[in-house]
Nucleic acid binder design. Structure first.
Lengths: 337, 337
DNA sequence: CGACGGAGTCGAAGCGCTTCGACAACCTAT
DNA sequence: ATAGGTTGTCGAAGCGCTTCGACTCCGTCG
């Protein structure tokens, strides 16, 4: 293993000079710089991460806590994780992957050991156990998601309230009067993650203003669950002509079931999905959807974090404005016959 | 930040004693141990990762390189990543997440900087650029996937050859004669990842023995691509009664299209998917499938790696035996009418 | 023309931990 | 009783890097 000292010797300068060439924290003459850089090249030098962390008390690592469950929103999680990793790299940081499994202990471990300089938490619950710890530490952090009390915290999330409202508006504009919301699995609500409730609240209050009637039904993913849910929806509100689907894995079952029942999309029934664009495009009907901007959320979180690490960050809640893309699954409400 | 020295002082012992309590590398009297552990508790001590890494030249970190593309097998990737992370934790290791983006440079950076003690590579290509580097380093590594030349490497993967054979056997046993393989997107073949080819080879050679006729068609995911592909299959081989689908995102479109054409599954046509069990269960027909054992692959890779780190690892290729689960999408071939 | 300040470099002091050799105290076997 | 082991503890020497103060050259300004 090549060390700083060896590079220094090879270049005929002192170790500290090499260090300053690397960090740029003091001015170095062009000649010296070039010589040092050449030696680094020739010897194939890589600074030792541990030594660096010890001496500077900065690890250049960001910890990312992802949910352990693979039951929900997997593609979104993955996309966020990848976006976080690549943008962190572009700022010179590596990413340490933690699962939610350890819970608050993981936070303690990371802050205590200096393993990471900062952390990003996903899958935040309304009243998350980890929040008090985050508030009580110097270590910068950013949440992806929105807890009940955001005081002293930095959060990034899609504006799910506005998302719900947007869906209501689109359906109202098309003349629909009776709409159904196919929500997340009951477990998601019990877990108090908030985003599903926020969507619903936004949708409900806008619907009230617009005179829409809303029926909300949580729904596990998959065919059988969707089948039951759908039957109950039409049972209770036969006149339902608009659907808003939040559960990704309920989308395709819903479309198939509607088709099977002879209800055409979008002629008889309109469907809006809240899902990544890729899913909306690949479905059996190209779906009108509000995108979940996973990439943007990941990138944004990293940028907030870097700003904090560099000292000019502020505690702030960034709600990304939702965008509705009209595709082939929504159309004018059928005229009552 | 609490240091070892402070713990030592608080417990009235020397720093080295505390260190030995922590590592267990020398025997410590029960009394001393207890005192030290108590001090650690009281002070809330966490060893500093950087200092530890520097002194011991072990970081207790495993690097995991995941593919950058989110176009394929996302749930599988995610599941593997999570399995790797949790089993690494249970062995006292953390996981550093790297994207394939950096390519070979990432390998150099990690081995050079001592940031990680070992690495796991996913999405390995047949003739991967990173392999020479891995062979040339002391650092243990495990591949998830199978390159062309496995010499001097440790690999974990599903036995895709056997998987293909298994599919052929099942369909042959049910009396099918003409089968079609809906393969991965053309890009996957061009990328030379190998697993798709291995599946096909296994399936073809077993089919030859069993007298099955095989038609192979690569296919992008999604509805439109599947629609075209399916049309061409029936055009060329109208008598096709069995399908093997490798591309996860082609499964649901295929089922929908068959339904639309009035071909019943499994009465008229049988379908086997190669996909995670969860996908198979959630589809619109409960799918007979060969599972992709993501969890097992991840766990296995970590175990191989730990073994190597502890010195008793061997370079070896572990091919996980495929398992076919019969569900509702396969049945006897229709009798020619 | 001497004092001053900036640019460029060096030496040395740690950062917090692991680990090696040393040593004291005790136990056993002769 | 003595040589030889064990067991438990300590002190000190680094691991490879960053960073601070100090020093030497210069060019520049009053």
């Amino acid at each position: 293993m090549v060390t700083l000292a060896e590079v220094a010797q090879h270049a005929g300068v002192s170790a500290s000079t090499v260090s300053y060439v690397l960090s740029g924290k003091r001015s170095i003459s062009a000649v010296t710089r070039r010589r040092v850089e050449e030696s680094i090249q020739v010897l194939g030098y890589h600074p030792n991460a541990g030594a660096r962390a010890l001496a500077s008390s900065r690890s250049n690592i960001i910890a990312l806590m992802i949910p352990l469950r693979t039951d929900m929103y997997v593609p979104v999680m993955m996309e966020i994780a990848i976006a976080v990793t690549t943008s962190a790299r572009s700022h010179g940081y590596d990413v340490l992957l933690l699962t939610g499994e350890e819970g608050p202990d993981a936070v303690r471990r990371i802050t205590g050991s200096g393993l990471a300089d900062a952390m990003i938490l996903m899958d935040v619950e309304l009243d998350d156990e980890r929040l008090p710890l985050l508030r009580g530490t110097e270590q910068p952090s950013v949440l992806i998601g929105l807890p009940a009390d955001t005081n002293g915290l930095t959060c990034v999330d899609l504006d799910f309230g506005a998302t719900g409202a947007l869906c209501a508006e689109h359906l109202a504009m098309l003349g629909h009067r009776d709409i159904a919301v196919i929500g997340e699995a009951p477990a998601v609500y019990e877990r108090h993650t908030g985003f599903a409730e926020r969507t619903l609240d936004g949708l409900r209050s806008r619907s009230r203003e617009l005179g829409l009637r809303v029926l909300h039904r949580p729904c596990e993913g998959g065919f059988d669950a969707m089948s039951l849910t759908l039957a109950r929806v039409f049972d209770e509100r036969p006149g339902t002509t608009g659907f808003v689907v939040q559960n990704e894995s309920a989308v395709e079952p819903l479309l198939a079931l509607l088709r099977r029942q002879g209800r055409a999309v979008p002629e008889d029934v309109s469907v809006i999905a809240i899902c990544p664009d890729q899913v909306a495009v690949q479905a059996s009907v190209r779906l009108t959807s509000v995108a979940i901007p996973a990439q943007e959320m990941g990138r944004n979180a990293v940028e907030q974090l870097i700003a904090k690490l560099e000292g000019h960050g502020k505690d702030d809640v960034v709600l990304i404005a939702p965008e509705l893309t009209v595709r082939a699954s929504t159309g004018p409400a059928p005229t009552a016959s």
